[in-house]
Write a protein that binds this DNA or RNA. Structure first.
Lengths: 214, 214
DNA sequence: GTCTATAATTGGATAGAC
DNA sequence: GTCTATCCAATTATAGAC
């Protein structure tokens, strides 16, 4: 059961098609520049028909935010509480998050923009994302304390990491790379930036995949 | 002379104050979500008075784009044509661009969003920025060919780099770090990510600052 | 569940006085 | 150079028929 929660598969309901189309438009034109008419037209219905499926335009975006955050936040917080090398946990976070973002049926690269993440209308989701950021920063702080990571302000490094994820996600959504390869390239790039000794990367990758990666 | 081109200093004209305020609002609320009324109110004038200084809302953004691109593009293209180690040139590009972005009187972090960079209304500026991207990618390709940089697709790495710059710029605009230190931290982070041998970083930094950095 | 018709509001921009 | 008054287009959302 709950096969729907795992993958919507082929039989897209209208509601599902709205989410697919809206995520694509939000990603390319931005949230505020995307009109409900455009969404409706792309779906193949009239503008007022949208409101049978969602009570508002905001609700569409909120549903998309949930589809990402409800997976990413619990996973990151579990990793933050975990003991074990911070390097391995950071690797696991990056691989899990990127894989989820890229394999999502929705184009999630338009969600985490300033126009959305500073809009009071989305405060509860902004708060959720803050928790994600705190979790990442805890892992980074652990790695700095253990001497695994270069000693930079965790807030700065976390911002850099999220910047990379969002931008490269845009790339991945456009031209479909070999997802698996693409994902590993980005993770390696980030890990090399923060590791004091990048030569440890293969060993860290192995450890990350043995434990929780399967 | 041309002291104005270097720094607008204290005596801000209304036109200058419009640019300052608009850049701040574009950065936090996004371009489309920012209304001309908000800009006018923040400046201390009425909405129609804006149109004495700029023919349209678009023109305000276009002026801000020019203030960045007219500096960044020629510099990056000169570095791309240059011979000499790609690592040193990449370092110079990063330091120059970040310094310029951070020291600008305008908050430029709202300019390079999808809602702007995919809007046909800004096509000439989008083209300018494509030239910047091509220049960066040429430097990256040189570094890969010379065996200095890790062998990843240059488009992916360039996207990651611009992602870092835009996001950390947001940070820098908020809480004012020691700019000099902050800038070097970001540059080092990026260089470590792309260098095959990060131990070379101090030497590269020295070379970058000797030559064109002064 | 989708439609037509339309309400209610807000957006960028203009006209013309001062 | 700024103002008031206003236009016109576009936007989200609702009402109610089918």
């Amino acid at each position: 059961m709950t096969a729907r929660a795992v993958e919507p598969a082929v039989p897209s309901s209208t509601r599902e098609r709205i989410l697919l189309v809206a995520s694509e438009l939000f990603a390319t034109r931005g949230y505020h520049a995307t009109t409900t008419r455009e969404i409706a037209t792309a779906v193949g219905i009239r503008q007022p028909s949208l409101f049978h499926h969602f009570p508002s335009k905001e609700a569409i975006l909120q549903t998309l935010l949930d589809s990402d955050l409800d997976v990413a936040v619990p996973h990151a917080e579990a990793l933050a509480k975990d003991r074990g090398p911070a390097s391995v946990r950071l690797y696991q976070y990056l691989e899990h998050d990127l894989t989820h973002l890229i394999s999502s049926p929705y184009n999630l690269s338009g969600l985490y923009t300033e126009e959305v993440m500073r809009d009071p209308a989305f405060e509860p989701w902004i708060a959720k994302r803050r928790r994600l950021h705190r979790a990442i920063e805890r892992i980074l702080a652990d790695g700095v304390a253990a001497g695994e990571f270069v000693d930079l302000p965790v807030e700065v490094v976390r911002e850099a990491i999220t910047g990379i994820l969002v931008r490269t996600l845009t790339l991945a959504s456009g031209e479909h790379h070999e997802d698996r390869v693409f994902c590993e390239q980005i993770v390696s790039l980030v890990m090399r930036a923060v590791l004091k000794d990048p030569a440890r990367l293969p060993e860290i990758r192995r450890a990350a995949r043995e434990e929780g990666g399967g």
